[in-house]
């Protein structure tokens, strides 16, 4: 296992590259989902306002 993590001494290059790439994949999903939630909440507010003063 530790041999795998060491990557013949290149672990300090390989793993940060993977962490950055996978982190970016995760972050994009997280932000996209949050944006969708926010957009839904805003649309609800807009509709409620339209109902109050049409």
């Amino acid at each position: 296992m530790s041999e795998f993590l060491e990557m013949k001494g290149y672990g300090i290059y390989v793993w940060p590259a993977y962490v950055i790439a996978l982190g970016a994949l995760w972050l994009n999903v997280w932000i996209a989902r949050r944006q969708l939630r926010t957009a839904r909440a805003e649309a609800r507010r807009r509709l409620a306002m339209l109902e109050q003063n049409p």
Partner: peptide, 25 residues
């Protein structure tokens, strides 16, 4: 997947009312 999710949020932001929006929400 990301493009569809983002574009959905963008479509919502542009919508100013309408029955479909009411139903979806």
């Amino acid at each position: 997947a990301i493009m569809l999710m983002r574009a959905r949020a963008e479509v919502l932001r542009r919508e100013r009312g309408g029955t479909w929006l009411r139903e979806e929400l």
